[in-house]
């Protein structure tokens, strides 16, 4: 800095060596900051689609919800190395999945649901949460019987393969007996997924005998619907309450069937045929 008491008045402002140096320094800082911001912004742009993984990419057991997972996973691949069935892969650079994060594709190799969950044990950060002790609690995804038109059981056949291979058989997938409207004399046993028990291991999708699986495992957020918060299921509320919450209801006859046992529920006596199913709210 120049000493103000001996400052040379002849010098125009901004040309002293000190101010030139200062300007150079500030220019340097500005350029560095600008470049730094540009690079970071570039990374931000590249990094933002992270929350939209392709539907076929499933996270390992115990993976935190996707947003948390992306703050926790350091992409070391230890889970991949400790997966005894080579189910897990690391996403390559430039793909749709956050590069370097672990995933698996059920149709290629499904999760074998090891009892000791080695992938979770291997995770150093907790991106695969150590709170998962029972593999049956895992929620890697949710199976969805997405194509009712090509599923063999929906066509009236007894394929049942997805049901048979399910490690949580009769809980995660059940066969629901339904009347076959087309033949009108057979049953259809429809594979039905229950989200409460499905771990998303992908065995069903892997084993579907069709060239393209009719049952697919998707990330839970993609597969599962959600009822509005205020919805109540009448039959559950009724069971909880031990009876109808609104008391007995006014029962009206079917018009034109007044006073007939099969059309008017107010009339006692055996309902022989007719419209009255006997159902009461």
């Amino acid at each position: 800095m120049t000493d103000p008491s001996t400052a040379k008045p002849a010098r125009t402002p901004g040309t002293s060596p000190a101010s030139v140096a200062r300007r150079k320094f500030l220019n340097g800082i500005a350029a560095a900051a600008g470049t730094g911001c540009l690079l970071t912004l570039g990374a931000l742009m590249a990094g933002r689609p992270a929350s939209a993984n392709p539907a076929q990419a499933l996270r390992p057991p115990g993976a935190l919800a996707e947003d948390d997972f992306l703050s926790a996973c350091v992409r070391c691949g230890l889970c991949v190395r400790d997966c005894p069935y080579d189910t897990l892969k690391l996403a390559p650079f430039g793909g749709a999945i956050a590069n370097g994060t672990p995933y698996f594709t059920a149709r290629q190799v499904a999760c074998e649901m090891c009892d000791d969950i080695p992938c979770v044990k291997a995770c150093p950060t907790g991106a695969l949460t150590p709170k998962l002790n029972d593999i049956h609690e895992a929620k890697m995804g949710l199976a969805v019987l997405s194509d009712h038109e090509s599923c063999l059981n929906f066509l009236g056949l007894r394929c049942d393969v997805c049901y048979r291979v399910c490690p949580v058989i009769d809980k995660a997938i059940t066969l629901e007996n339904v009347h076959n409207q087309r033949s009108d004399r057979h049953a259809m046993l429809l594979p039905t997924v229950h989200s409460e028990h499905c771990t998303g291991c992908g065995k069903c999708e892997k084993s579907c005998v069709l060239p393209e699986a009719a049952i697919k495992v998707m990330p839970v957020a993609l597969a599962q619907g959600k009822l509005p918060e205020h919805y109540r299921k009448g039959w559950e509320e009724k069971a909880k309450h031990g009876g109808s919450l609104i008391g007995d209801q006014v029962e009206m006859p079917v018009r034109g069937m007044e006073d007939k046992a099969y059309g008017d529920s107010r009339v006692d006596g055996p309902a022989v045929g007719g419209l009255n199913s006997g159902w009461k709210p």
């Binding site: 350029a31 970071t40 590249a46 956050a98």
Partner: peptide, 29 residues
């Protein structure tokens, strides 16, 4: 050639971006 101090700005930026997006943004690139 960029300023040699640019790396410190990128370092700060990478951490700021991580904080803003709650994810390891820099690891994408």
């Amino acid at each position: 050639v960029p300023d040699a101090n640019t790396r410190y700005w990128v370092l700060a930026g990478s951490l700021l971006a991580a904080a803003l997006t709650s994810s390891l943004v820099w690891e994408w690139v």
